[in-house]
Amino acid sequence: MLAILKRELKAYFYSPMAYILIGVFILLASASFRFVIYTGIVDFSSFFLNLRVALFVILPILTMRILAEDRKTGTEKLLLTSPVSLTGLILGKYLAAFFVYLIMVVTTFVYQVIVVAYSGHVSAQTVGAYVGLILFGASVIAIGVLASSLTESQVIAGVVSFVSVMLMWAIGSAGTYVGGIAGKALKWISIIARFDNFTRGIFDVSTVVYYLSFIFIMLFITVRVYERRRWTKG
């Protein structure tokens, strides 16, 4: 697993991919931060909500190659005939994308330093929002890894994960409109609606568990996809 994690991290930084995505993320984050500062909103939640929208696009692009490329170029034959378990393989791939994402998140600490210097304290709301941001991103990456396992086309993988995330968003929004028990259920399903709670400073252990389970299920399905493919692929 460690070998795969290392190799994937290198691969991200050998190609311009990681630099471009991190660059775009920083650009959007600073634009958002500027907006927050200018409007003088003390509530920081809109900053995180904007980041979230940026991630809708950035994370599917980050993850689309992760398994599809190996399938296309045939390197999966090396990986799948090596003494590495499927779980180790997929976890290694997943963690590589997750680390690149963590780098993105860490760059935004710069803004928090500015805020702390200004306000004099670290707000609990910010800490909560960061935990939420990381968990949310980790979940989107898990969706992306699953999507990438389904096809040898990176483009299709990217589109599938983008559409899936959009669908999650739609479900969450629908939940707000519908209201009542049905609305609650819809919001419960949506990984995106859950994130909103964090930005409002509601730190909820059950939500953390929810995200972790979601990631686990996505990766578990990915492993199953590979097990099943052993019967059909050429």
Partner: peptide, 12 residues
């Protein structure tokens, strides 16, 4: 295993 098409990471 050496498959029909050698499985190589071309970026290394």
């Amino acid at each position: 295993y050496l498959p029909e098409h050698p499985p190589l990471y071309t970026d290394m």
